[in-house]
Computed example of a mutant assay.
Amino acid sequence: MRVYEIAVVDGDGIGPEVCQAALSVVKSLPGLDGAFAFKAYLAGAQEYRRSGSAYPEESFQGCRNADAILHGAAGLPGVTYPDGTETGIEFGLQTRFRLDLYANVRPIKLRPGVASRLRDRVPGDIDYVIIRENTEGLYAARGSGVVLRDETAVDSLVVTRKGVERISRFAFELARARNGAPRDGKKRVTLCDKANVLRSYAFFRKVFNEVAEQYPDVEADYAYADAMTCHLVERPEFYDVIVTENMFGDIISDLAAVTVGSMGMSPSAELGDRNGFFQAAHGSAPTIAGRNVANPYGTILSAAAMLRWLGERHQDGRLVRSAAAVEAAVDASMAAPGGLTMDLGGRATTRDVTQRVIDNLSRASAAA
């Protein structure tokens, strides 16, 4: 039986709590004894304080060579480089760029038991995926921007044909595999851009359209980024798959997460041709670290995405079935009385949620 090596980086703030919660769930899965080798690595703002490096080379090599990477959260207030940029985010950014994790997959789904911040929305109304191009765009300028004479600062927005082609194709292939938008069942890919203002985004749209022609069974749709912030509030049921540039994807996915409860409900997968990096999209929330109140659902769902990706990549049905089991256990936990955490209006603790999910997995296994 294959043993999958998982690089585990707890990170900062609530990172260790939510990461270890997800690991406890994975370790409890029936039928997977001995399937994983978990190896811990250091990275983040606390590591920068300790060693002077936010991402030691040993940690990078371990992450690069692992079958998958599971992360908690990173960053601490005031822990910055001399130029004022955060040290904690170095781990995520460098992992994306150095391992070419070009597709950031952020599912937005209203789950049972959660009250949407949008009036009258119920589970089934909101179910779409944001595909964020992860290695180009404005964030590609990280570390290479220019400050002239303390008077002018410049960062460049980078868009390449290769980058747009592969992220657009990824989005259309995902739409083909999904059930369509909740409103009308149509398989649809919406491009979010500012093609009316900047040539870089107009070029992104041009290449997107070339790829769209290869998918006549999937509807191509368009929305400017400013309008998209309205649409995700007013008509979220219209959307199936949304694809966008790096910074826009960062912004609209945070807004979208709040519509389905909170940032704690925002799993993500960052995928390349070889490597996969899995974490919740929320921050490190240092003000609640160590209080046992952090919402671990996003990280647990990210671990489920890791299982599915590994299972599909290696044709291992055990992992695909386990991913579905974890998602079902999360839904059952949230739908039951007392299953919501503080950020969702409930009182369940981090440990409460973890144990609920594990118990639901055990009950489902016994019933089967």
Rank of each mutant, 00 (worst) to 15 (best):
M1W: 08
V3Q: 02
C19G: 07
C19A: 10
P30W: 00
L32T: 12
G34D: 06
K39T: 05
G44E: 06
G44P: 00
S51C: 15
S53V: 09
Y55S: 03
F60D: 04
C63V: 08
N65P: 13
A66M: 07
D67K: 05
D67C: 02
A68P: 03
G72Y: 05
A74H: 12
A74F: 08
L76V: 08
G92Y: 04
Q94T: 09
D100K: 01
A103C: 08
R106S: 02
P107D: 13
I108S: 02
K109H: 09
K109R: 05
L110W: 05
R111E: 03
L118W: 05
D120V: 14
G124F: 15
G124Y: 12
I126M: 09
V129N: 01
I130F: 12
G143T: 06
L148R: 10
S156K: 10
T160D: 03
R169C: 09
F172T: 07
L174K: 06
A175D: 03
R178A: 10
N179Q: 15
G180F: 04
G180T: 06
L198V: 09
R199Q: 13
R199P: 11
F204D: 05
K206F: 07
V207S: 00
V207T: 01
E219F: 15
E219A: 14
A220T: 13
A225L: 06
T229I: 10
Y239T: 02
Y239G: 01
N246G: 01
M247C: 04
F248M: 02
D254S: 08
A256L: 02
V258A: 02
V260Y: 04
E270G: 07
R274Q: 07
R274A: 05
A281E: 06
A281T: 03
A289W: 12
R291K: 14
V293L: 12
G298W: 06
I300T: 10
S302V: 00
A303M: 01
W309E: 02
E312G: 01
R313E: 11
R313Y: 12
G317W: 07
L319Q: 11
A323L: 04
A335P: 04
A336N: 04
G339T: 07
T349P: 12
T350I: 05
D352Y: 14
T354Q: 11
Q355Y: 09
R363C: 10
